[in-house]
Design a protein around this nucleic acid. Structure first.
Length: 412
DNA sequence: TCTGGGGTCCTAGGACCC
DNA sequence: TCTGGGGTCCTAGGACCC
């Protein structure tokens, strides 16, 4: 029998913003940008939630619901720093920690009673230590499985601790809506509703064969989850080292749709540079380049190309993302562009002589570029359009509305 | 309700090979 | 030339998470 903690920060992005601007405390705050911008809510304060504002909601909608809210831009760097701080606090509690995202973590406290006392005492100790060291609130769920611990921390919000005793899982889960199960989203919820399955208890009492016949492999996993088990997929496995990265990508939604080839090519260059730069940062090479394209009507397409050698060079990503774009573009205005690198490997693989020399030359240049970017920011240097087809001398303007990411914490 | 950005995992079909 | 079956790789799309 295990003892798993799930630690989930309360309204994380909002709370971090409050550290920098204490005057925001208690007010309706929306993190994600200004309401006249294209975008969605990254996080909303509890005061804003009272008006029906929640994450993933379009900023414009949030404004309609709560015009008096204070709209602030996200600060990804701040959140990352705070997240690392939280990690260190957790790490000081036990080495068996795994960050599951920027604002939540799993801890394995099995057999730690001697050190930390019984689970409830340990959880309160940890809760207090996080608050003391980071000045941030969190909620903690304690249970025998990751799944139940996670659902538990959600029920404990805000700023609470909840422990489900081994054996009490079914009683705890039964009255909760199926949507509370991680992995059950809008679509699965709706499908379950058509069979009259609304609560986890309904799900738990069903025949496994029925679920398998309706939902396949996913149905079997669901049956397990309804019992509180870490069935299949990402929940299985020990708490410790997280899995290696599978892909690196960047995308950009234009503030206004564009059919301007110059802007599009420059944007693809910029996105490719951002991806390549991160590949180098992590000493990774990618074999597959994927383009993402979204039109005004929101129709979205992806087109991929797998190279015969892995790369971490801007030029390769720029060349292939542009090639994919121009081979597939209908000419209609574009809402979003994305560049995605996958098939990642640590080694660059065997190269022929010419490729090898090319890579060496570029690598030297790009290492310098990365250094400058590190010092002065990503916008400071761009090889961008200069790479197009070879020898264009023009230095392009960075699209005015390009970078600025808003990671978000979702609370349902 | 006019819908971001960065990820993971799963499915399904086709190519290709033995 | 009436056609099997398994394995692997690649591509495209979609659900879901924070």
């Amino acid at each position: 029998m295990k003892t798993i903690f799930h630690v989930d920060m309360d309204a994380f992005f909002v709370s971090v913003e409050e550290l920098h601007h204490p005057e925001l405390k208690g007010k309706p705050v929306v993190v994600g940008g200004q309401p006249d911008q294209r975008g969605v809510v990254s996080a909303a304060s509890y005061a804003a939630r009272k008006f029906g504002v929640h994450s993933a909601m379009p900023l414009r909608t949030a404004y309609k619901l709560c015009p008096q809210a204070i709209f602030v831009e996200g600060h990804p760097k701040r959140y990352k720093e705070c997240s690392e701080q939280v990690f260190h606090v957790l790490r000081s509690f036990t080495p068996r920690v795994e960050m599951a995202s920027i604002d939540e973590a799993y801890l394995d406290l099995t057999g730690a009673e001697r050190l930390h006392g019984p689970p409830m005492l340990a959880a309160h100790k940890l809760h207090e230590r996080v608050r003391e060291k980071t000045r941030l609130n969190c909620s903690i769920g304690v249970a025998a499985t990751r799944l139940v611990a996670k659902i538990c921390s959600d029920q404990a919000k805000p700023n609470g601790v909840l422990w489900i005793l081994p054996g009490a899982e079914a009683r705890f889960l039964a009255p909760l809506e199926v949507r509370k199960i991680p992995g059950v989203g809008k679509v699965t919820e709706k499908a379950l509703h058509t069979y009259g399955i609304r609560r986890i208890g309904d799900l738990a009492s069903l025949d496994r064969n029925f679920l398998e016949s309706k939902f396949g492999k996913w149905g079997l996993a669901l049956a397990g989850k309804a019992q509180g088990l870490d069935a299949g997929g990402w929940f299985a496995g020990e708490i410790g080292e997280g899995p290696d990265a599978k892909s690196i990508s960047h995308e950009h939604t234009f503030n206004e749709d564009t059919a301007d080839v110059e802007v599009i090519d420059a944007t693809l260059a910029k996105l490719s540079e951002m991806v390549a730069s991160r590949l180098r940062e992590h000493s990774l090479h990618a074999r597959t380049v994927q383009l993402k394209l979204r039109y005004s009507d929101f129709s979205t397409f992806t087109r991929a190309h797998t190279l015969d050698h892995a790369t971490q060079l801007d030029i390769d990503l720029v060349e292939h993302s542009r090639r994919l774009f121009h081979a597939n573009w209908t000419g209609k205005p574009v809402r979003l562009l994305g560049v995605h690198a996958s098939n990642l490997q640590i080694e660059e693989g065997q190269l022929n002589l010419i490729e090898g020399e090319k890579q060496e030359r570029w690598k030297k240049a790009l290492t310098a570029v990365d250094r400058i970017r590190g010092k002065f920011g990503t916008g400071s240097v761009s090889l961008g359009s200069a790479m197009k087809g070879g020898f264009r001398e023009r230095v392009h303007e960075t699209p005015a509305d390009l970078p600025g990411k808003h990671p978000r914490k979702q609370e349902r």
